[in-house]
């Protein structure tokens, strides 16, 4: 197993470089003369743009910028080969340096560190809510297939699929914030993680978390409950379930001990794949609810061509996808003894 994990980790290196290269090229070739953090205006002269681009190192050929960012250029420099690339060379990814934002000059890792806890607060709550609700929902649906309850759950998950998160979010805001406020009822804050200045205690944070977490979990819930249901149905028709029943085992034991454990294996993959979603999956919800998370940071910085910040977050997300996949495979083996890696 350990060998397998190491092999997978090694295989991930080219993937990370591939992802970063593609991201870099996408940003680079759509950027044009746009300078991160700089708004276009008439008093901004072409010579200002040229000067600031040069200060930021954006005037170098794209491969030099990329090699500099990755830290390969720094190796060159140490090997006395800096002359090949020319210009300023900094430490890069390989030296563990994610670079500095091109907009405010602060370290990208500091940005990630600042936003990550907010995103994790939102997504982990949503995923937990999703798991806790979707599994019983799926199991009930499978056990009472064709019943009114099953149809209701089906309709609910179709709705969860079909209703865009931003729309649901806006409707909730309209109802629980604006209308409740107008009606003189207790109302929920429409945006942010905490009340500025006066808030920030646990109750305040939970109150702020309620709507965004509900909206985000709604998406997970509708997908996962369907998976649990169909996978449960399949497992319930297996021979060993009939055997268990034939042995006179209690139905509850059959369902939850024998069937469910096998039924949740595909769900483990899904949840594992949701790991990078821990970081970026809540983007739309983060935007609608003004949640200062990492998805919103990436989105905003991408539109401002803050190359280093976007590259940093992308790399971070790529590492999480790889880790998530690996974790899902390991979980597989834990959940299903038939699966062995060598």
């Amino acid at each position: 197993m350990a060998k397998y994990a190491v092999r997978r980790a090694l295989a991930a290196i080219p993937v990370v470089f591939g992802v970063t290269l593609v991201t870099f090229l996408l940003i680079h070739f759509t950027q044009g003369s746009f300078v991160p953090g700089l708004d276009f205006n008439p008093s901004l002269r072409p010579e200002d743009v040229a000067r600031i681009r040069a200060n930021l190192g954006l005037d170098r050929p794209w491969y030099v910028q990329y090699l500099d960012w990755t830290g390969i250029a720094f190796f060159f420099k140490n090997a006395g080969l800096a002359g090949i690339l020319g210009g300023k060379v900094n430490t890069g990814l390989l030296e563990g340096d994610f670079g500095r934002s091109m907009i405010d000059g602060s370290p990208v890792l500091a940005h990630i560190g600042e936003r990550l806890p907010n995103t994790l607060e939102l997504t982990i709550t949503a995923i937990l809510l999703g798991v806790v609700i979707s599994i019983p929902l799926g199991v009930t649906g499978a056990l009472r297939r064709g019943s009114k309850l099953d149809h209701f759950f089906t309709a609910l998950s179709v709705a969860g699929f079909a209703v865009p998160a931003f729309w649901l979010g806006l409707v909730l805001i309209l109802l629980f914030s604006v209308s409740f406020h107008a009606w003189g009822l207790p109302w929920l804050p429409s945006s942010g993680v905490a009340t500025p200045l006066t808030g920030g205690d646990l109750v305040d944070r939970v109150v702020h978390l309620l709507m965004p977490a509900t909206v985000l979990s709604f998406v997970y819930l509708s997908i996962w409950s369907r998976y649990t249901r169909s996978s449960m149905l399949e497992v319930l028709s297996q021979d060993y379930v009939r055997t268990a029943r034939a042995k006179g085992m209690a139905e509850r034991r059959v369902t939850y001990l024998h069937a469910l454990r096998n039924a949740v294996i595909p769900l483990a993959t899904l949840i594992g794949l949701e790991l990078p979603g821990l970081v970026g999956g809540g983007l739309v919800v983060e935007v609608v609810f003004g949640w200062p998370g990492i998805g919103r940071l990436a989105f905003e910085r991408a539109l401002q061509y803050d190359v280093t910040t976007v590259m940093g977050i992308t790399t971070f997300a790529a590492l999480l996808v790889i880790a998530g996949n690996l974790l899902a495979d390991v979980l597989y083996a834990v959940l299903d003894p038939r699966i062995r890696y060598s």
Binding site: V178, H181, S191, G290
Partner: peptide, 22 residues
């Protein structure tokens, strides 16, 4: 005593928060 500048995602939220007094 203090002045707070709150960053909101869009015009909709600004309008909503004006209405709620946030």
């Amino acid at each position: 005593d203090q002045y707070v500048i709150k960053v909101l995602p869009d015009q909709t939220t600004v309008a909503n928060q004006l209405k709620t007094g946030e």
